[in-house]
Simulated scan of single mutants.
Amino acid sequence: MLLILGSVFAALAALVHVYIFVLESVRWTHPSTRRIFGTSAEDAQVTKPLAFNQGFYNLFLAVIAVAGIVVALAGSAGAGIALMLAGTGSMLAAALVLILSDSSKARAATVQGLFPLVAVVLLVVALI
């Protein structure tokens, strides 16, 4: 049961990170995305290459978590949990770095880190 719940939260975390990928790598200079991140048109244009790269990091973390779900569902629970923990643990670590580097980003860090946190806790308990 804990593996299933952990997988659900890993999937939710992956979906959030795919959304972040779209914002950062595809829609970075769009007005609605600039409002979300609080950037001007000029700043968005200058930081576009950095955001593009960062978005792919988020996508890759989502892919790792989803790969773990698939592997676990295919019958290799240990390997699947390891992959899910690699993806969601990295997501959680990134959320912690965000809030520690800029406390005004607490809401964004919560959005980025809540599902991974729950997934990590559930998956670690599933291992015990």
Rank of each mutant, 00 (worst) to 15 (best):
residue 81 I to R: 08
residue 103 S to D: 08
residue 20 I to Q: 15
residue 56 F to D: 02
residue 17 H to K: 14
residue 14 A to L: 05
residue 88 T to C: 13
residue 116 P to S: 11
residue 87 G to Y: 07
residue 36 I to Q: 04
residue 110 T to A: 13
residue 17 H to S: 13
residue 93 A to H: 03
residue 96 L to K: 04
residue 106 A to P: 12
residue 6 G to V: 01
residue 119 A to M: 08
residue 70 V to Q: 01
residue 40 S to K: 00
residue 14 A to G: 01
residue 47 T to Q: 04
residue 43 D to W: 01
residue 40 S to H: 00
residue 12 L to K: 11
residue 99 I to L: 14
residue 24 E to H: 14
residue 124 V to P: 04
residue 26 V to K: 11
residue 69 I to Y: 00
residue 105 K to F: 11
residue 109 A to S: 14
residue 116 P to R: 08
residue 48 K to I: 15
residue 58 N to F: 04
residue 91 M to H: 15
residue 97 V to Q: 11
residue 9 F to C: 10
residue 68 G to E: 00
residue 12 L to Y: 15
residue 89 G to P: 09
residue 66 V to R: 06
residue 50 L to T: 12
residue 121 V to W: 07
residue 45 Q to D: 11
residue 90 S to Q: 08
residue 77 A to Q: 05
residue 89 G to L: 09
residue 90 S to D: 09
residue 74 A to I: 00
residue 93 A to R: 07
residue 114 L to Q: 14
residue 5 L to S: 12
residue 35 R to C: 05
residue 36 I to A: 05
residue 112 Q to G: 12
residue 100 L to S: 13
residue 48 K to R: 15
residue 116 P to T: 07
residue 66 V to N: 08
residue 50 L to I: 04
residue 38 G to Y: 01
residue 23 L to A: 13
residue 83 L to R: 03
residue 9 F to A: 07
residue 38 G to D: 03
residue 1 M to H: 06
residue 96 L to V: 06
residue 109 A to Q: 13
residue 73 L to Q: 05
residue 87 G to V: 07
residue 17 H to M: 09
residue 1 M to Y: 11
residue 48 K to T: 15
residue 84 M to E: 05
residue 93 A to G: 07
residue 116 P to V: 11
residue 9 F to M: 05
residue 123 L to S: 02
residue 46 V to H: 04
residue 71 V to Q: 02
residue 108 A to W: 11
residue 27 R to S: 03
residue 38 G to R: 03
residue 125 V to E: 09
residue 24 E to Q: 10
residue 71 V to W: 01
residue 67 A to R: 03
residue 63 V to W: 02
residue 122 L to S: 12
residue 127 L to F: 08
residue 101 S to V: 13
residue 10 A to P: 07
residue 32 S to D: 15
residue 72 A to R: 00
residue 41 A to Q: 06
residue 76 S to M: 12
residue 100 L to R: 15
residue 73 L to K: 02
residue 33 T to V: 13
residue 111 V to R: 11
residue 7 S to T: 05
residue 126 A to N: 06
residue 85 L to I: 00
residue 17 H to Y: 13
residue 94 A to W: 09
residue 120 V to C: 07
residue 118 V to Y: 06
residue 109 A to Y: 14
residue 50 L to D: 04
residue 21 F to I: 06
residue 26 V to Y: 10
residue 31 P to D: 12
residue 3 L to D: 10
residue 47 T to F: 01
residue 81 I to P: 04
residue 64 I to M: 09
residue 77 A to F: 07
residue 5 L to M: 11
residue 71 V to N: 01
residue 5 L to F: 14
residue 86 A to E: 04
residue 46 V to C: 00
residue 107 R to S: 09
residue 83 L to V: 00
residue 97 V to L: 12
residue 105 K to S: 06
residue 51 A to R: 10
residue 83 L to H: 02
residue 5 L to K: 06
residue 119 A to C: 00
residue 26 V to F: 13
residue 34 R to P: 02
residue 103 S to N: 15
residue 50 L to A: 12
residue 99 I to E: 10
residue 8 V to G: 06
residue 84 M to F: 02
residue 94 A to M: 09
residue 108 A to P: 14
residue 107 R to V: 15
residue 85 L to Y: 02
residue 48 K to V: 14
residue 72 A to I: 03
residue 10 A to V: 09
residue 122 L to K: 10
residue 41 A to N: 07
residue 51 A to C: 09
residue 15 L to C: 15
residue 50 L to Y: 11
